[in-house]
Amino acid sequence: MEQIIGIDLAKRVFQVHIVSLQGEKKANKMLTREKLKAFIAQQPSSRIVMEACGSATYWARQFGQYGHEVKQISPQYVAPFRMGSKNDKNDAIAIVEADSRPGAGKSVEQQDIQCLHRVRQRLMKNRTALINLGCNEP
């Protein structure tokens, strides 16, 4: 892994902030949806960090296909690191900064496992409710 890429996701235009592992700023640019995939495909092996949102899992899977390590961070952990007003550029910088803290983000695999545990827990709760409902009948 050579660098850390923070991406602020949006509908059409994405803000991309790139730093080296030593923390040196390499780039901070705006890319359209069409150019983002091609740009990420050209990057060396990197850790890509995004705020968790509706489209983050889709993008995480897309970027993972190029051999990058992808993490998602909850927006509540990014907000304290934002300097200045809330805009795409500051958000991308804050995402990279939040990633430098231990335990900040989760990989797609970790989220998949959490999802399975939640589904199983819900099924167990429903099963118990059905069993209890059946016990009350005469």
Rank of each mutant, 00 (worst) to 15 (best):
87 N>V: 04
55 S>I: 06
123 L>A: 11
92 A>D: 10
66 Y>D: 10
16 V>F: 04
130 L>F: 03
88 D>E: 03
95 I>K: 13
42 Q>V: 09
71 K>G: 08
126 N>Y: 05
99 D>G: 12
21 L>H: 08
17 H>A: 05
124 M>C: 12
130 L>S: 12
133 L>M: 13
10 A>F: 02
11 K>W: 04
43 Q>T: 03
83 M>W: 14
32 T>Y: 07
68 H>T: 06
122 R>W: 06
51 E>K: 14
55 S>M: 04
39 F>L: 03
120 R>S: 04
45 S>H: 14
102 P>Y: 07
18 I>N: 02
94 A>E: 08
113 I>L: 15
14 F>A: 08
7 I>F: 04
53 C>P: 06
12 R>E: 15
66 Y>N: 05
69 E>Q: 12
127 R>M: 05
46 S>H: 12
13 V>S: 11
135 C>V: 10
31 L>Y: 04
20 S>A: 12
49 V>W: 08
130 L>Y: 03
105 G>L: 00
89 K>W: 05
126 N>Q: 15
6 G>S: 02
5 I>S: 07
25 K>N: 11
77 Y>S: 07
82 R>Q: 13
96 V>G: 04
77 Y>R: 11
47 R>K: 06
80 P>L: 01
92 A>T: 09
123 L>C: 11
14 F>C: 04
60 A>M: 08
133 L>H: 07
16 V>R: 01
71 K>C: 15
6 G>P: 07
7 I>H: 02
19 V>C: 11
123 L>W: 05
138 P>Q: 15
136 N>H: 08
102 P>G: 02
105 G>V: 04
36 L>V: 01
66 Y>F: 15
132 N>C: 04
47 R>N: 11
125 K>C: 08
128 T>L: 15
120 R>C: 02
37 K>A: 14
98 A>E: 08
129 A>R: 15
91 D>I: 00
125 K>S: 15
88 D>K: 03
31 L>M: 00
25 K>L: 12
